[in-house]
Design a binder for these strands. Structure first.
Lengths: 245, 245
DNA sequence: TGTTGAATGTGTATATTATACACATTCAGT
DNA sequence: ACTGAATGTGTATAATATACACATTCAACA
């Protein structure tokens, strides 16, 4: 039995990772060679995305698609926006690419955007055919289709969330130092924070808890390690009373 | 020429209105009569929604669909979430309703959720065939399809936004009093605020500006009227520095 | 025209939170 | 034992949040 792939529906996933210095995004190479395989017609990158099956949940599709392209498992995805402009697939390269696979070009492909936050950029990526690599988010220039726009929207969403919810911990290893946490916020929000004030603020977050363990093997005073406690967070978040700004 | 309607894609719009007391939502009656027209097979309500055309933008679809059902014009919509569970249309009533129109039931209809905020609940609604009415949000029990879930998500989104951005002014008349503004926040967030402290907070919002006009025809001290200035807001919002909580 | 009912509009004291800012400590490596 | 590199800490001041009570102004009515 063959599952029916929906030609007018797809899912695109923005996979973020933090390497303790920069925010990165996982991109898939899109390289089209001439028939004789000797010259390259074009080469660029896209997000991890593909069409969904008729009998497939959106959330499951995100998991499947990323797994197909990267081998990554157990990622958590969150939907952030859906893109449905009529001109999403306008560039000649995009059309050539699609035709190459014999797909009919739907007059418009609606794509649901998901993002995922990974705690590092060293995980083993199983490249099944196409090259997949990490790129610093702020150096990404052009992408296939409207993926640049999707990436921007995901970033915007991430920044917004970061200022209102403790999503940042998903981008840090389970045990992290306060300097790492500070770097994360600085990198994503593009700001600079005072170390003492940052730590004072964090010390008020009861859900960031120090553990009986310190950094090891560093050529300086080893830092205290912390973990994020989702349980404590759920208990404390009860009511925020401020409106906006 | 006939435009092709996409059977597996739809847009559902959650239209909120505030009547100075309660948050309300605009719902469309869904009444199915027996063939002889004498008995009612079932009757319930749904959000304003319908399938989109092949050659139609998502945003335009929202505008068209709401206009078709209500005659309302010039609404501003914002997308908040997309629903694509495989069991969205599970209830027998939903299936009967769809079959009635001779539509094929797609195995899954993906629907993009939009919401709109109206400054009052008195606008002239042109009912084209189906009855459309305002209902207090917190008294809505069951809805067609998964529309109850969609409404909840829209509400959640609205509350979130309300605490972080000045979207509430869209639910108030152009000229409003501070008491009205306070009531709005209390109604939507389900909280109670101290009048003096609320006003102190608002007085720090440079974009809420008093005008040379007072309430008229009220049997008590007439209140100062205010307007929201988007221009001033854009200038002031520069940087918010808090993370979360 | 004066009395009533109803909502408006205002200030202060106290507690909490935000900001600005500099130096001793601890480790690995040599 | 010395160096380089990052950690970890406190205080004074400013800004913001909270708790709380009463005189004012209008329309309506007697």
């Amino acid at each position: 039995m063959t599952r029916k792939l929906l030609t007018n529906l797809s899912v695109d996933c923005v996979i973020f990772g933090f390497d303790m210095d920069q925010l990165k995004v996982l991109l898939v190479e899109r390289k089209l060679k001439s028939d004789d395989g000797k010259s390259i017609i074009f080469s660029d990158h896209s997000l991890t995305g593909y069409h969904i099956y008729e009998d497939e949940d959106l959330d499951s599709a995100a998991i499947r698609i990323v797994n197909d392209l990267t081998g990554l498992e157990n990622l958590k995805f969150e939907q952030f926006y859906t893109f449905g402009s009529l001109d999403r697939i306008a560039h000649p390269n995009d059309q050539i690419w699609i035709e190459q696979f014999g797909d009919v070009i739907s007059s418009r492909v609606l794509t649901v955007g998901y993002y995922s936050l990974l705690p590092n950029t060293n995980m083993n990526i199983i490249q099944k055919g196409r090259k997949v690599n990490w790129f610093p988010v702020d150096q990404v220039k052009e992408l296939a289709y409207d993926h640049k726009e999707i990436l921007e929207k995901a970033l915007e969403h991430l920044r917004y969330k970061l200022q209102n919810e403790p999503v940042g911990f998903n981008l840090l290893p389970e045990k992290f130092t306060l300097s790492q946490m500070q770097k994360l916020y600085e990198a994503i929000l593009g700001a600079k924070y005072d170390k003492r004030n940052f730590r004072k603020k964090v010390s008020q977050m009861s859900y960031v808890v120090p553990i009986k363990e310190k950094q090891q093997g560093v050529a300086h005073k080893p830092a205290q390690l912390y973990i994020f406690s989702p349980e404590v967070y759920e208990k404390t978040r009860k009511e925020r009373n401020h409106f906006f700004i």
